[in-house]
Design a binder for these strands. Structure first.
Length: 940
RNA sequence: GCGCGAUUAACUCAGUGGUAGAGUAUCACCUUGACAUGGUGGGAGUCACUGGUUCAAAUCCAGUAUCGCGCACCA
């Protein structure tokens, strides 16, 4: 006795397995009963039916590893096809996948997979970013917690070793998560911004720009983060409106005059100790005579001048400004103009120093604010305090108010700004949604020099060396008078030959200073080596990213592309929206409103998550997340699975296929049309439209209509030719549909592709690299034939809808067996079987010229009249009421259309088709209301 | 203050001048041999408001309101 063996997927098909097993056991039992001893060589249960529910977990893992094993994601730089490339926006190396990543990377995966299925050589280049501040502070936090040490306790080298350790340990997480999502990145080319080759690029770029004079060192007012103890770029500062600010009105005594005071308004009394002047507008009559005189700074007591400066707004506050050149950007500029002394009363960490006076030393800046105010009050110099609303800049990473601070930093004057601005303005780079163009243009117009040095250790150390004896002096951030004339400085990619005599600049570069080279530095491993990858895949085709990093990253990449590769780094930029929670808040760790995508994948499947997110992600607009959407994705996967399973259950056809039915022609025509329309939506990057159309086709057109209409063909006593034709149609539809759906739901489509053996029909081993044919699915038919079939089918489906409606409105359930009588418009109607199947009727009688008895409900359709004899089961009063309602509505509609038509006829400018359509509608409603009146009469 | 975007069913959102749509939710009926993660049918909208253009406006224009975002200012 021998039974065949089933292959993989055992667990998924437990249902089928169980039934088969029971049968198997009962056969064995019979054999034993009859006294035979069966020789069992191998038990093999043909589980040829899939289970009812689709279980994505194993299927997804299985296919992902098969793709990887077969090297399907590799970007072939020697391939003959057209190139298509994307570089991933590198996530933070220690980051964790969130829904924003899912949306962003799914879009890229869709683009990449679609390009592969167009026969292109595709490179989707992945990698991670070292994320200077974020990573360093994570490790510092850990250090403090576990060992109660700061990075300075360890020293630079040991600390960096710790960060690398951390990176090795946690760095792979997000990459693994992207794999679970199904991302088809070329992992063999994974890059990290601190790879040696990549780092070499950073140095080269720095040296280039230094030599060009675009990178310079200088003392400037910078955004200082007192928590991270580093300078930040303007982009890393977020302005936040303050609710509880106060405006302090303080009076300063005029020196040398008995009882004359000048009143100033300030929000920051704690900087008073750094005041080196009081400024007024020279045109302000109240104070004009004070210019040139001195006032007394209350503490530490000193005489400071009153100066006139046009930038003072006489309307604001009292019209007099205390000038603290070391602690405010505007004051800094006033200080420069009037050559005022710069008195910095703060330490780097935001506490006050000895210049603030002994009682303030070591005090936190916010505490000092209160203390200074109290002290002024005690001195009788605090006039009043008002509640006030203003905005304060916060450090993006550390979320503390930044401190404007003068310090010595490296700055970059951007290269190729004109080229970058033009490229976007003239469409060499296309932004989607387009309105981001304007934001970009505005930023480019007002572009400011970029502070690129950071007082961190984790990152690319600045490739600058100072002669040893001068190093301390030159390195001191506070040493504002340092000379950078050159002979004591060495700038180069490699260290100076006599390195022992030099000391390297301690600072590292802003992380974005490495990211802006990403599109090309990832493709070329060193600056000399010519790269076939670069030649084939650069510039890239699409960049998919969030609009929040348009300045941080996108703009800078464009400039870098022009500067080092002589052109645009990408042709299209698609800005995906931001995912928000139900209340419309941004997803954030603090709020805890960000679901873990891995949990969702576990629960619903990666395909479901991908599809659902894309289906409800409007082009570039923000998206409100609701888990219900993911359920919808899961349901869709189940629906596909079950409709495919239904086909599977029918087995193979013994005979030759007969001619395709009109329903078959119709569904295949719709599928061809779908393919065309998807093309259009893809061209416009309307990913939600694509998803909606795929969903609509499968669920509505294929499952609800075609599949239902075709069920009759599988009747046991049915026609073999029809059966074979229907099976063939289903295979055709399934095959092409899986191809179209694959970019969105790669795993389930690959699974079904395999189960149905479609890969045998194509050259490639996997659906994922099978090219989608452009040719029509129905070749032997003319356009006219297709149209005719579709029209017929549409008319039948319309009649079915009305017939169902008729049933339902008499309280007859969908499966209630009734008899419909059809009086066909054309005199004949042959689709009885399908009509009966779709309407759940027992019988369809075709009776040309049928004269209905009084009160028989009827639906007027394009195919003719459809009667539903009720055989006296219906309550007459209820029926009368229902009909009266209908009549009322019909009369209303008739009124509407008549009025409209009257207007049209009067003005007569509407196109002919519109008028005609209206006339048809008028005729319809006229007939309908006549009929309804008649029926009401009939009821008596 | 300047710029951008949004405002359509209870919710989330499609809808580029020609009869207001989808999914979810809801109501009624239905466990029928693909699928209850399902089927059939229904109810539900002054398309934010006010004007204008047009034969025709959710759609184009102008203005108003509310919300959101960005930039600038903030003594």
């Amino acid at each position: 006795m021998r039974v065949a063996v089933f292959s993989d997927g055992f667990e998924e098909r437990l249902d089928g397995f169980a039934t088969q097993l029971i049968i198997g056991i009962s056969i064995l039992q019979k054999a034993f009963d009859k006294g035979f001893v069966p020789l069992i060589l191998k038990i093999n249960i043909m589980a040829d039916e899939s289970s009812k529910a689709y279980h994505p977990g194993e299927v997804e893992n299985k296919w992902y590893s098969r793709w990887v094993e077969a090297d399907c994601f590799r970007g072939d730089e020697t391939g003959k096809g057209d190139a298509y490339s994307i570089v991933i926006p590198p996530p933070n190396v220690t980051g964790i996948l969130h829904l924003g990543h899912v949306l962003n990377n799914t879009i890229q995966d869709i683009l990449a997979r679609r390009a592969r299925m167009q026969g292109k050589d595709v490179l989707w280049l992945p990698g991670t970013d070292h994320a200077g501040i974020a990573t360093q502070s994570k490790v510092e936090q850990k250090l403090r917690k576990e060992e109660n040490k700061t990075r300075h306790d360890l020293g630079r080298e040991a600390f960096l070793a710790k960060v690398w350790e951390w990176k090795e340990e946690h760095g792979g997480i997000i990459i693994e998560q992207l794999k679970r999502l199904g991302c088809s990145c070329d992992w063999s080319r994974e890059r990290f911004t601190m790879d040696p080759e990549y780092s070499r690029w950073i140095s080269k770029v720095f040296v280039d720009l230094y030599k060009e004079g675009l990178i310079y060192r200088g003392k400037r007012m910078v955004n200082w983060c007192p928590k991270s103890l580093t300078a930040l770029s303007d982009e890393e500062v977020i302005m936040k409106p303050q609710k509880k600010s106060k405006l302090y009105f303080v009076r300063y005594r005029v020196a040398g005059e008995a009882d004359r005071w000048i009143e100033i308004a300030t929000t920051r009394p704690e900087t008073l100790m750094g005041d080196t002047a009081v400024a007024v507008n020279p045109k302000d009559k109240r104070y004009a005579d004070l210019i040139g005189k001195k006032v007394i700074r209350p503490f530490p007591e000193a005489e400071i001048p009153v100066i006139g400066d046009d930038s003072i707004d006489p309307e604001f506050g009292t019209g007099a400004l205390k000038v603290t050149p070391a602690h405010d950007k505007t004051d800094f500029e006033i200080g420069l103009r009037h050559k005022l002394p710069f008195v910095d009363v703060f330490n780097p960490d935001g506490t006050l120093n000895e210049l603030a006076g002994p009682e303030f030393v070591g005090m936190d800046r916010f505490k000092a604010r209160d203390v200074a105010a109290e002290k002024l009050e005690a001195m009788g110099q605090l006039v009043r305090v008002e509640d006030y609303q203003n905005s304060v800049g916060y450090s993006e990473r550390a979320d503390v108010p930044i401190e404007p601070r003068i310090s010595m930093q490296w700055f970059l004057k951007y290269p190729c700004t004109r080229e970058a601005a033009d490229a976007v303005a003239n469409g060499d780079i296309v932004f989607r949604p387009e309105h981001h163009k304007k934001t970009f243009a505005k930023w480019m117009e007002g572009i400011q020099d970029w502070c690129i040095s950071r007082q961190l250790w984790w990152g690319h150390q600045i490739p600058v060396w100072y002669r040893k004896d001068k190093a301390e002096e030159l390195q001191n951030l506070e040493n504002l008078s340092a000379d950078f004339s050159g002979k004591d400085i060495y700038v180069g990619i490699d260290p100076p030959e006599d390195e022992a005599n030099w000391v390297r600049d301690a600072d590292v570069l802003d992380t974005w200073f490495s990211s802006w080279l990403w599109p090309f530095a990832t493709m070329r491993t060193s600056e000399e080596e010519s790269s076939t990858t670069l030649a084939k895949f650069y510039p890239t085709d699409d960049l998919v990213t969030g609009p929040d990093i348009i300045f941080f990253w996108v703009a800078r990449m464009i400039m870098a592309g022009f500067r080092w590769q002589g052109g645009v780094p990408f042709k299209n930029v698609y800005f995906n929206g931001i995912i928000r929670d139900k209340q419309g808040r941004k997803m954030s760790k603090q709020l805890g409103n960000s679901p873990d995508p891995l949990d969702l994948i576990e629960k619903y499947g990666a395909d479901a998550l991908r599809f659902a997110l894309l289906k409800s992600a409007p082009g570039g607009a923000d998206l409100k997340y609701d888990e219900k959407q993911i359920e919808e994705g899961r349901n869709f996967a189940t629906k596909i699975w079950n409709a495919a399973r239904y086909r599977e259950m029918q087995g193979n056809a013994p005979g030759n296929p007969g001619k395709p039915s009109i329903y078959a022609i119709d569904i295949v025509t719709k599928l061809e049309k779908l393919q065309e329309e998807l093309e259009k939506s893809y061209t416009d990057y309307k990913f939600n439209e694509v998803a909606q159309m795929l969903h609509e086709f499968w669920w509505n057109n294929y499952c609800d209509w075609y599949l239902e209409s075709a069920k009759g063909d599988f009747a046991p006593d049915g026609d073999a030719g029809a059966r074979a034709a229907t099976l063939a149609t289903m295979d055709t539809v399934l095959e092409r549909f899986l191809m179209l759906l694959h970019p969105y739901m790669p795993h389930i489509t690959e699974e079904l592709w395999d189960r149905f053996g479609f890969n045998r029909k194509h050259d490639s081993a996997f659906l994922m690299n099978t090219a989608i044919p452009q040719k029509a699915l129905l070749e032997g038919l003319s356009q006219k034939q297709k149209e005719t079939a579709s029209e017929q089918v549409a008319a039948i489906y319309e009649a079915v809808g009305r017939a169902r409606n008729l049933k339902a409105s008499y309280g007859l359930g969908a499966s209630k067996e009734v008899t419909f009588i059809i009086d066909p418009e054309s005199g004949k109607f042959t689709e009885n079987e399908v009509f009966a199947k779709l309407t759940g009727a027992r019988e369809i009688k075709v009776e040309p010229g049928y004269e209905a008895k009084k009160g028989v409900p009827v639906a007027i359709c394009a195919i003719g009249k459809v009667y539903l004899p009720l055989e006296g089961l219906i309550d007459v009063d209820v029926e009368r009421e229902r009909l009266s309602k209908e009549l009322k509505r019909a009369v209303e509609e008739l009124g509407k259309v008549t009025t409209k038509l009257g207007n049209e006829a009067f003005t007569s400018k509407a196109p002919q088709e519109v008028i005609q359509e209206m006339e048809e509608r008028k005729a319809h409603w006229t007939a309908r209301s006549d009929e309804l009146s008649q029926m009401i009469d009939n009821l008596g």
